[in-house]
């Protein structure tokens, strides 16, 4: 059980320093997240909210 974890966690095959590492995958993931956020916001605000009946105008 414990040995399984030790093996799994010692799989480092290379050391990457700050200058050798560009988080390209992170940038891609976060760009996808950004697009989802933006699209969902527009949908929620303009369709779900402004498209809903009875708006408080005063």
């Amino acid at each position: 059980m414990q040995d399984g974890r030790d093996m799994e966690e010692e799989q480092t095959v290379r050391e990457l320093s700050h200058d050798e590492f560009d988080p390209n995958g992170t940038l891609a993931l976060i760009a996808v997240y950004f697009v989802i956020l933006l699209a969902m916001w527009v949908f929620m605000y303009f369709v779900e909210f402004l498209g809903n009946e009875l708006t408080v105008v005063g």
Partner: peptide, 14 residues
């Protein structure tokens, strides 16, 4: 967006 809703659309807060 919220400011647009408050001004152009005229949604008022309690």
């Amino acid at each position: 967006t919220v400011t647009y809703g408050a001004t152009a659309v005229g949604i008022d807060m309690v």
